[in-house]
Every structure is written in C-alpha cells, then in structure tokens.
Amino acid sequence: MFPTPIEKSSRAWQIGYQTLLPVALIAWLLPLIAVMIFSIKPDSDFTNGNYWGIPGSFEMFNNYGKVFFESDMPRYLLNSLLITVPTVIGTVALSCMTGFALGVYKFRGNLLIFFMFIAGNFVPFQILMVPVRDLTLDLNLYDTKRGLILFHIAFQTGFCTLFMRNFIRALPFPLIEAARVEGVSEWRIFLYVVIPLMKPAIAALAVLIFTFIWNDYFWAIVLTQGPDSQPVTAGITQFNSEYRAAYHLMSAGSIVAALPPVAMFFLMQKHFIAGLTLGAVK
C-alpha cells in the first residue's frame, strides 16, 4: 500500500487528511457546483447582478419544469435514447462475434485483423468525416437516427473487438476444448459456453458504449440536423441559442442533458470502472 496508510501516520495528519478531502472535492467540482447553483436561481437574480449571493428564491422546480415541458428537450433526450440503445446492442453483438473469432481460433491473418481493428479505433475520426457523410447521403440516411446508429456501430466495433478479444483470451481454453471433444458444434460453443462466461465483459462494454455514444457531439452535427433526429448533445446548443443569456434555464438544460450517463455510471460503477481500466493491471 502506497502512500503510507493513514491509520499508521500521526494523529495530526489523520485529522488534516479528513478535513482536506472535502475541501479538495469542492475545489475539484467547483465549476459544476456553480452550474448547479445557477440552475435553481430565479431570472431576477441575473438581472440584478446577484450571481453568487443567496438565491432570491428557490426556483428549481420552475426551471427544470420549463426544460421538460416548454422546450424541445424531451424530444432530444428521446432521440439520444433511440440512437444509443440500438448502438449498444449492435456493437456488443458484433464485437462478441469478432472477439470470439480472434480470441479462440488460430489462423493466418488473425493478428493482422486484430491490429486493423485497433488501428482503426485510434484514427482521428475527422479523417472519416467527408467520406462517411457522403456514404450516408448516398444511402439516403442523412439526418436520420439510423444513419448515425450504423456509423457508431461500425466505429465502436474497433474498440469493442479489442476489449472482447482480450477478455476471451483470458478465459480457460480447456473448457472450449472439452466441448469440442464432446462434439458440440462451434456456434453452439459460442452460444452456450463462451457467451455465459462473457457476461461481465458485456455489462462493462454496454455501460461504456452507452456513455460514449450518448456524449457524442461531432457525428451528431455532421450526420444530422434538426430536432427530428439530433441527440441531446447537439440539441443543447439549439436550446441555448433559444434561451440566450437565460443562465438559469441553460444551466438546468445542461444538467438534464448530462444526467443519463452520470446515472448510468453511479448505478453500474463496478462494471464501468472494470471496463475503463481493462489492461491497466497486468
């Protein structure tokens, strides 16, 4: 354990540490706390220049009510959900298969294909912008959720294949060999032997991809426009131009937009961190 465990150090430092923790946390989250305070203030506070004093009145329900009932926000949130969930399902399905193929079988080109997936995942995605936009237009999928979903599935498959393949590699291989000796066909081995063992990886990947896709902004503005198909990350800029300088509403709007992945993280923390830190320990 490093640094020296706190229980073994002097009493003074123990108390110091315990007081330092909340102070450091507040400093760390200060920008966010500011937005939370903004989001419960009344409009009059801003016109009076009372930015950081005690709020004139407590307007949380009013402000958030406006976001939910008097703006396009719910529509954008629904779009985000309708984009994110199919992408998660599609990517997990595809990468279970690719990960299985690359993790279990030895064949020529295995490592080459694996590295193609990794390399593609590292690419700065701006280089894909012009051709992918063109392809989406050709497929008549521009400004549709489907066009965005297809691209996301394809791009995320790179990262997910890396993830799944490494996970499958670490599974006990004799299990698969035993099934083969029994005469179980390969796709049944995949379905009944490997998939059940991959549940933790699937859970971790699902939360990660949910967050990545929910938070995507670049592809949302490249492949969609307008409230029919744009997700909330793009919608929030629209929302903000509508309520320009109404900081209490803009703050409430951004908190709402950020909330689903945050909730996901706190609910599925174990899986989330297991996914993010895969490979951080040898």
């Binding site: 966010l32 938070n215 902004y217 990350t233 929030i236 937009a257 950020a258 992945p261 945050v262």
Partner: peptide, 8 residues
C-alpha cells in the same frame, strides 16, 4: 467529470 459529455 469524465462521464459528463464534453459539450456540457
């Protein structure tokens, strides 16, 4: 903070 979208 890592979980919040870059837009926010």
């Amino acid at each position: 903070p890592f979980v919040i979208s870059q837009v926010v």
